[in-house]
């Protein structure tokens, strides 16, 4: 499963563009999708070293994506860095209980995102 590929699941194109830029600069390949179902499809098709996952997605939300991943033996160990505009303790707890490896509150610093990806991604 090891690769340099990161999957960004985010429905805001400008954020995707910035994430792509900062991750490519530290030598990751970035693939992006804007909804949860396509994200799961992509994860089952290709190997990724980590997923950067927004929680507020249209239709299937990020927590549902994460839950599905953790129940799927092929995806259960794939590191997930959760991005969310909801920063309350219960939101963090819900994400951690569902199986997030890291939890980053929006607005974030780019350095923080890179740091968490570097920490968990399996190169």
């Amino acid at each position: 499963m090891s690769s340099n590929r990161i999957l960004v699941v985010e429905d805001e194109p400008n954020i995707v563009e910035s994430l792509r830029f900062i991750l490519e600069r530290v030598n990751y390949d970035v693939e992006s999708v804007s909804n949860g179902l396509t994200a799961l499809e992509q994860m089952r098709k290709q190997a990724f070293s980590a997923v950067v996952l927004d929680i507020m997605l249209p239709g299937m939300n990020g927590l549902d994506v994460l839950r599905t991943m953790r129940e799927d033996s092929r995806l259960s160990k794939l590191p997930v860095i959760v991005l969310t505009a909801k920063g309350q303790a219960q939101d963090r707890k819900a994400a951690e209980e569902t199986g997030a490896n890291a939890f980053i509150t929006k607005p974030y610093s780019n350095a923080e995102v890179v740091k968490q990806v570097e920490k968990f991604a399996r190169r």
């Binding site: 805001e12 400008n14 910035s18 830029f21 505009a85 607005p107 780019n110």
Partner: peptide, 26 residues
């Protein structure tokens, strides 16, 4: 939520611009 999303995008892009070493196109 929309404001937070825009603020995120704004701060991230501003950080990239402030970081320098960008091509003209970037």
């Amino acid at each position: 939520h929309q404001m937070l999303t825009n603020a995120t995008s704004l701060s991230s892009a501003a950080e990239i611009l402030a970081g320098g070493s960008l091509s003209e196109k970037e």
